[in-house]
Amino acid sequence: MTKLDSEGLPTYEQIDSVSFTDFALVEIDDLTFLRVENPGRSVRDLLNALETLVGMGFTVKPVTFDKGQPTTVFSSVDTSKLVGLKVVGAVLADDLVARMEFVSKEGMAVESMTVLDGLKYRVEHAVFELVLGGLKGQIAFAANGTVKISGQVAPKLVSLVEKDLHFFV
C-alpha cells in the first residue's frame, strides 16, 4: 500500500488481507462437482490448494448449459418465465457483430422475437424468474458456466440444479 507521509512523499507499507471462498464438493454418481459460491475474480488459490490435496492430474472443467437447461428446476417450480436475455451474433453479409440485450418484467419467448429471425447467435446470458409455493427466485445462466441464484427459494433452486449436473458433463 502506498501512502503519503507528512512531507507528501510516498511511503510503502505491506498490509495483510484476509479473503475466503465458500465452496462445496457435490458428489453425484461417480462424479464430483465443485460449487463455488460468490467467486471472486480468481479462484486460483482454491484450485491450487485442491491440486495439492488431490495430487497431479487434478483438472477442473466448467459445466455449461449450452446444449440445454436443467430441466428439474423448471419442472419443479410453479411458474417460470424468461425475463432477461443477452445474445451475441454475427451478420456476415454486412461484416457486423450484434450484441443485444432484452429485458421484460412480463416474460418473453425467444421464438416470437422477430429481431432474432435469421441471425446466427449465441446466448451469453439468460435470466429466469421462478415461483415456487408463492416464493420468488431468479436463476441466471451465463455462457462461461456461471449460474447465479437469488431470492427466497435459492437453497431449493441450488439443490435442483445440482440434481441435473451429471447430464451436462
Rank of each mutant, 00 (worst) to 15 (best):
A140G: 00
G137E: 00
L53E: 11
V110R: 04
K81V: 04
E101S: 15
A126K: 13
T52Y: 12
E101T: 15
A154H: 05
V87F: 02
S104R: 06
K86R: 14
M56F: 13
V60E: 02
V115Q: 13
T79F: 06
S80W: 15
V88R: 15
E106C: 08
V60P: 02
D78L: 07
G133W: 06
L96A: 08
V127L: 13
E101H: 13
E124N: 15
I139Q: 02
F102S: 05
G118D: 06
K67Y: 06
S75L: 10
S75G: 08
V103Q: 13
R122I: 07
A90C: 04
F58S: 09
V73E: 00
S150M: 06
V73F: 04
Q138M: 13
V83T: 12
A93G: 10
Q138A: 03
D94Y: 06
A126L: 06
T72F: 05
E101Q: 15
F65S: 03
T114K: 15
L119D: 02
L132S: 10
V83K: 02
F65N: 03
L116Q: 06
I149Q: 03
G133L: 08
L53P: 00
N144P: 06
V77I: 10
L135C: 01
V83C: 00
K105Y: 12
T79H: 08
V131S: 11
H125A: 05
S104E: 04
K136Q: 10
L116H: 04
G151F: 07
V103T: 14
V63N: 05
A109D: 15
G137A: 03
V73G: 01
E106R: 15
V97C: 10
A142V: 10
K105A: 15
M113N: 05
V91K: 12
T52V: 13
T72E: 07
